[in-house]
Design a protein around this nucleic acid. Structure first.
Lengths: 179, 179
DNA sequence: TTGATTACTTACTTACTAGTAAGTATATTT
DNA sequence: AAATATACTTACTAGTAAGTAAGTAATCAA
């Protein structure tokens, strides 16, 4: 599963095969089918494992200040970046239409989990005064998650550290007021 | 090429085949190879056509106010969204590592063309006072392009209009000052 | 000690992929 | 009228994909 996740997040769901995994583990492709009969079983397992990890993360961060929680969330993108991986949403999202229905539903569910968490963090920061912005938290959270998602993609394409730029704009944007 | 572009932007480069095109045109796959011997010839043609169209667009918009130019740029994303397509960068970027070298180089070149144009627009808006923000224009432009790119992806995954949220945050963010 | 379970391999099928070589009908040029 | 170029088709190859059925060796439980 670690290998499969790496392959999905570096090459894409439709661009890796069971042979990529089996040969890396010195096995035959049938050995992978033994654990994951169909490819979507493996794909679903990766999505749901990621959802679980996210749930565990936000649970661990729960008592931290909103800004600290957001920093830790962005830190997971920085770690992905160091490993030259994009996030699973950035990898699976563009090929959404090619995915089996089960994976589509799980991916959609994951997107709501992440988006609603960021919304909550932003609202908490507004409430305790640590964040200041005039946009609707619903809109702001989507602006943040989209810029993070695509920064990993553009890091690869441009060879520059887009994530660093995006990160600084995000935090500046949380300490502003309209003129 | 129109069909190929649509396929790339809806399913991804590695998830469409010459047969998808040939059968839609009532031809045999060899007929497509007649015009584009290898798949990367077709891929490159799509990228370079898009680069050319972008160059033509920004040339047409040249005399407009910065804000108007940005609006027109974002309008191209809204049109893509209506057609249920993501942008070519959002489609090809995640599978960057699987692309032939020629396509990688062209995609990277395209990314610089788009990013430097947005940077110029932001600087022009700062200069004439129509935009107001404290972030570095280099950072701000990357925050804008990433949020637009990923908004099309997340529109599909969530079924919500993420682009609308992102658009409003972008324009609010260009009329702000730090506290 | 037998029987069942686990973790595979062997060997295969079906389907699809990009790509090619050789042929053909039609239109265009000389 | 003959030669050539255009736009294909036919028929194929080689490679890869997901997936499966049947067999096997080793471990574990009764």
């Amino acid at each position: 599963m670690d290998l499969a996740e790496q392959l999905i997040r570096s090459r894409g769901y439709n661009s890796f095969s069971y042979k990529d995994i089996s040969s890396a583990l010195n096995l035959k492709n049938a050995a992978i089918h033994y654990y994951f009969p169909a490819k979507h079983d493996l794909g679903s397992a990766i999505i749901n494992r990621t959802r679980l990890r996210f749930a565990q993360h936000i649970s661990q961060w729960k008592t931290d200040a909103p800004k600290r929680q957001l920093e830790q969330f962005i830190n997971t993108y920085e770690k992905a970046n160091q490993k030259e991986l994009i996030c699973f949403m950035g990898s699976l999202g563009p090929s959404y239409k090619t995915l089996p229905e089960s994976m589509q539903k799980e991916l959609t569910a994951a997107s709501f989990e992440i988006r609603s968490w960021i919304r909550i963090i932003l609202k908490a920061g507004l409430a305790d005064g640590s964040f200041s912005f005039n946009e609707k938290p619903e809109d702001k959270s989507d602006a943040i998650i989209t810029s993070l998602l695509a920064s990993l993609i553009l890091n690869r394409v441009t060879g520059e550290n887009i994530l660093a730029s995006v990160k600084s704009v995000i935090f500046t944007g949380l300490q502003k007021e309209a003129l």
